[in-house]
């Protein structure tokens, strides 16, 4: 386990006297059936609040890696993000590097509703923006298959380009390959 591995110990504090659950980052939470998440509206309000949710935890991760003695690697990101999505019950996350592209695979064993996809794209975008403040990564839900849901993080221009290709019938992984070829 690396120094930045996510530690779930004491992550949730149950304040029974006040009937509330507080996360280690100070968020007030509620434990609700996961089916209720499917009722989330996939609109701008959900996206903005999900971005704020991701920023909270991205900021914490940035603080952790800033205290490391060695430059952090992708493993640090995967370790922390994997624990974070797991403890929130959002699924097991895997970081995938394809060429120069960075992708996140969420494995939850459930079919994601549009509202949950909006929640996760916003969360990942907010998380990434806190790691590299100079960037404003956007997240695109690329595909759903037997191995879970795949999200790609790219700059806004690249995201729009890939969206167009996908609309034209290009397959997600082929679109990423085209994008890397264009940049050469």
């Amino acid at each position: 386990m690396t120094q930045s591995a996510f530690d779930a110990t004491g992550f949730f504090r149950f304040d029974l006297a006040n009937g509330s659950i507080i996360s280690r980052e100070g968020e007030q939470l509620a434990l609700i059936p996961v089916d209720l998440l499917d009722a989330l509206e996939p609109g701008e309000k959900t996206r903005q609040r999900s971005i704020a949710f991701g920023k909270t935890h991205g900021k914490r991760f940035s603080e952790i890696i800033a205290g490391l003695t060695e430059p952090p690697g992708v493993e640090n990101l995967a370790d922390y993000l994997g624990g974070l999505t797991a403890v929130f019950g959002l699924g097991r996350s895997v970081v995938e590097i394809r060429g120069n592209a960075i992708l996140f695979r969420l494995i939850s064993g459930r079919k994601m509703s549009d509202g949950v996809v909006t929640l996760l794209t916003g969360f990942l975008a907010g998380f990434m923006s806190e790691i590299e403040p100079e960037t404003t990564f956007e997240i695109l839900h690329m595909q759903t298959d037997d191995d879970g849901d795949l999200f790609w993080a790219g700059n806004p221009k690249a995201i729009e380009q890939v969206k167009d290709w996908l609309a034209d019938g290009v397959k997600p992984m082929e679109a990423l390959w085209l994008l890397s070829e264009e940049g050469r």
């Binding site: 996510f6 504090r13 990101l77 995967a78 624990g83 797991a86």
Partner: peptide, 29 residues
């Protein structure tokens, strides 16, 4: 009394390497 939920450390999320390049040599930046 305030009860604190303490769970075991979560298993680390794996990094999948797709193109054969050694990820460990790369910094996150």
């Amino acid at each position: 009394e305030v009860r604190t939920f303490e769970s075991a450390p979560v298993a680390s999320g794996p990094v999948a390497q797709m193109d054969g390049r050694p990820i460990r040599e790369w910094t996150l930046k």
